[in-house]
Design a protein around this nucleic acid. Structure first.
Lengths: 347, 347
DNA sequence: TTTAATGGGACAAAAAACGTCCAGCTAGAA
DNA sequence: TTCTAGCTGGACGTTTTTTGTCCCATTAAA
């Protein structure tokens, strides 16, 4: 940050918070436009009054327009968003925090987005957008992309821009149906990615909790075998990170499974594997899907997870995560991770 | 101004005013330190409450310190003042206004300081400080400086910094006592300049309103003659600009004089000359002192005058002012001058 | 010792911000 | 076409903040 900005912040300390707030509102309008006052207040995590005050101002400044359909960002508004992007990151201390997280997690790249997606739903979209941008760059070089499920992954698919169709891209569902609701299943996500980019997709339909025998049988099926081969050729893996217990509950795991997860001290979950606080594999769901070794062979791994509640899980997963992994997360998670790490060091 | 600042101002329009206000308060404290809340509120033209609110904040930001003797600016505060100086000028539009005034007045350099000295007494000190800085640079090249009287000139003398004494400097009172109070007479000012810079000074003591005979007689006196010769060698002339009627009143001019001044449509006054709205000389006080031709021969002429009330006078004086003149003024005067000029153009 | 200035505390009055409705309108779905 | 969900803008009592204005104990200088 230049000396001018430092002096400015010194003389007007209230400016930082205000700027961040307005920026976030403007950005959210941009992302969700057209959007109304009430909807915006929910998604931006602010009261209706506050939204109203700020949007009135934004309109006076000709950064947004209000029509009967809702509010939209003007070209001037877009420009302001672009010009202030780096600055907002700096006054939030995000750039510094990214460096810190890279050291803590032992990976080469971390991208942190402002705010906490636990508190402000719109932040999830921002994370999705950022991940989408990163992916789009990679699409130039790599064509085989394995994707997992989850709401975060769904957010990415929403933010993929519909440029010129890229028929070479192949999206592979990293797992079969894992008991999650359809919208957030890997299969659905893979289809969504393919639709947005103009690529193709491969799904894996295999029920959970098969008996050992049935599982062995299925693995011999050509359809399934083909997928297993595809996993070997994967260039990019895009996946979320979940809280172990939450995932177990959401997947309606059997009592036996829950017991193993719990007794093993599982903290995090990613592509069907459960990890304890030291990053050791505690349990893995016995179902078809990408294997850890296959993930590790990929050229690029993109992990996406945000919200303070995910901090422990992220920390756990990255104890033994492959080094080329890139993490996209948010301020809430980042702060919590740093806090947890500091506490641990004190002991 | 860079794109970042433009975007920032777009998103936070209230920032500009706030920044200007705080900057001005901080600057005033710096100039008058140590100073108390009440005194500051008078000199800065703000209510006690407002001053209190802002100074509390400035203290929290460690830009000022509050002791029992009053408030003082910390080193951090000084730094902020320096770093933001140019920026404050820009957001006030002063840089643009300077260019505009240069065109309107037909001179090569104008310096405008924020605010209006009519409303805020402290602005006079700021003008004085700026003029003092400009002069100090010139002192390197030029040694013979003629100075007039007036409160503005007094403000300059107060702000001259006491560097290493410069014995070569010679300050010459441009006029004799003109009926003003002693503190603001040219003689006193010349002495003050000399004291601050370590130079010498020459005074001219000659009563006002002499009869024609007595005047002729005095002009033959060696003491007086010496001064007249000095005026011929003057390098720099520093002078204020006054409102014609005000000056006439302050100098207790005779009825006859006042009548001449009034009937002639005099608007401005400078070193004893009265000018009408077109810059024509309407009247000149018959007393010893520098002559207009001598002023015009000087290498540099520094005119200093501020406050909206001086706008007409400044405009009048500069109709025929020598081109190498530099004007130091304030925002109040500058805005009024521009306003008046625009009105004139419309007719 | 006196005096004039200082920062800090206090508090009622005024102003601004806030939460929360409702009315009227419009675009898109049915 | 009608219907409906979602939009903006207006309104208003309540709460919170800001403002104006004192006084007081303290301190540095005269």
């Amino acid at each position: 940050m230049d000396a001018l900005s430092v002096a400015q912040r010194k003389l007007m300390p209230e400016m930082s918070e205000l700027l961040k707030k307005r920026y976030q509102i403007l950005q959210t309008i941009y992302l969700e436009q057209p959007i109304g006052r009430r909807t915006l207040s929910e998604v931006a995590g602010a009261t209706e009054r506050e939204i109203r005050k700020e949007t009135d101002l934004l309109r006076n400044q000709q950064l947004i327009e209000m029509k009967t359909a809702g509010m939209t960002v003007t070209s001037q508004g877009v420009e302001v968003l672009e010009k202030l992007k780096v600055f907002v990151r700096e006054i939030s201390g995000l750039t510094d925090m990214e460096m810190e997280l890279q050291t803590i997690l032992g990976i080469s790249k971390v991208v942190i987005l402002p705010q906490d997606s636990d508190e402000i739903p719109a932040v999830k979209s921002h994370i999705g957008k950022e991940a989408a941008r990163l992916l789009e760059v990679l699409f130039g070089r790599y064509k085989k992309i394995a994707v997992t499920g989850g709401s975060t992954m769904a957010a990415i698919s929403k933010e993929l821009s519909i440029g010129k169709p890229n028929r070479a891209l192949q999206f592979i569902a990293a797992r079969g149906g894992l008991g999650e609701d359809v919208l957030h299943q890997a299969n659905t996500i893979a289809a969504a990615f393919a639709e947005k980019t103009g690529g193709s997709f491969k799904t894996l339909y295999l029920p959970d909790h098969l008996s050992v025998e049935a599982f062995a049988m299925m693995m011999k099926e050509p359809v399934i075998k083909e997928m297993m081969d595809l996993y070997d050729q994967t260039d990019i893996v895009v996946h979320g990170i979940g809280n172990a217990e939450e995932m177990a509950v959401r997947r309606h795991s059997s009592l036996e499974e829950v017991e193993k997860i719990r007794s093993g001290g599982a903290v995090s979950e990613a592509f069907g594997y459960y990890f304890d606080k030291d990053g050791k594999i505690v349990y893995r769901i016995r179902t078809a899907g990408i294997q850890l070794e296959q993930v590790q062979k990929a050229s690029t791994i993109l992990a996406v997870a945000g919200g303070g509640s995910k901090a422990r899980a992220i920390l756990s997963y990255f104890k033994n995560a492959p080094n080329p992994t890139v993490l996209v997360t948010d301020e809430g998670a980042a702060r919590k991770i740093i806090e947890l790490t500091k506490k641990l060091e004190e002991l």
